[in-house]
């Protein structure tokens, strides 16, 4: 599937002189250019099935229950849900067989919730059919590829996601260069970016904001909380994920997802890139 590329890659980055931050180009080329290298230790857990002996040490460590072992009476297996994962690496450290390692987490956004779930030791269940979504996605890409207006709603986040969504407007990420704008009112918006586990106290405001958007529109669930309730899923005060309340088109995992991950998620929503994460496995990026 191809869409007309309405934008050309940004100029290559000129290293800015030390100090001022006044000269040179601060802004990244991504997602038009290549994914920049990310400093610091990677955080996304990956399971090596040849080493895993299903002893469950990782599952016991996981604070959000993202890792589960198949119960007794079923064929042995383990599943890892990146929609619940906080990328805290506790599971990686807990495994006595070094079956878990850490990988990058920037391009993990998916259109289908089930694509965030990795299942090992049993045949992978077939994902939901993409046909309908593909149709919608084409329409969205056609309508909004050159200009997308976003309204964000914090449905009870810890404000970590707000830092990163806000960072999209900083010079380094500069969302507007992609024709994407964060607007003040849902009446002006094509898409709703929702963070937080949807608290009981925010549910009504979230629904009203959604209804105030003109159609066609779509919803992006941001972060572990937005996807699954994250560490708050067990609380009686939260609904436990945006898709319990609204139809969600794109899921961007992370705690919080980095600005790069959010850029990728939005670019995916616009049909400008192929989804890399399929059934919980990150495929190598397609050649353009």
């Amino acid at each position: 599937m191809t869409f007309p590329k309405v934008l050309s890659p940004a100029a290559p980055k000129v290293p800015s002189p030390a100090g001022s931050g006044l000269d040179g180009v601060e802004t990244l080329g991504y997602p038009l250019g290549a994914l920049p290298s990310v400093r610091g230790p990677p955080r996304a857990p990956q399971i090596d099935p040849t080493r895993c002996d299903l002893d469950g040490a990782c599952a016991r460590e996981c604070p959000t229950g993202a890792i589960t072992l198949r119960g007794p009476g079923q064929p042995p297996g383990i599943s890892l849900d990146y929609g619940k994962c906080l990328f805290c690496s506790l599971c990686v450290d807990a495994c006595p067989h070094q079956a878990l390692s850490s990988g990058p987490m920037e391009e993990m956004a998916v259109l289908d919730r089930s694509d965030l779930v990795l299942v090992r030791g049993a045949p992978t269940p077939a994902g939901a059919p993409h046909a309908l979504r593909e149709d919608l996605r084409k329409r969205v890409g056609h309508l909004f590829a050159g200009s997308l207006s976003i309204r964000t709603v914090d449905a009870g986040s810890c404000n970590g996601c707000e830092v990163e969504v806000g960072a999209l407007s900083w010079p380094r990420y500069d969302l507007e260069r992609l024709g994407i704008h964060i607007v003040a009112s849902p009446r002006h918006a094509d898409a709703l970016l929702v963070t937080g586990p949807v608290t009981r106290n925010m549910r009504l405001a979230l629904e009203k904001t959604y209804r105030a958007m003109p159609t066609p529109s779509f919803v992006v669930a941001v972060g572990a909380c937005g996807i699954s309730g994250g560490p708050f899923a067990a609380s009686a005060e939260v609904e436990g994920g945006v898709d319990r309340v609204l139809p969600v088109e794109v899921y961007v995992p992370g705690c919080p997802p980095s600005p790069l991950a959010l850029l990728y998620g939005l670019w995916l929503a616009l049909g400008q890139v192929e989804q890399r994460m399929v059934s919980g496995e990150l495929r190598s990026p397609p050649r353009s």
């Binding site: 009870g156 986040s157 810890c158 106290n201 925010m202 560490p231 708050f232 609380s235 005060e237």
Partner: peptide, 11 residues
């Protein structure tokens, strides 16, 4: 306030 109340202390 209270809109972001998640019952954290209980958790």
């Amino acid at each position: 306030f209270g809109y972001t109340h998640k019952g954290t202390e209980r958790l």
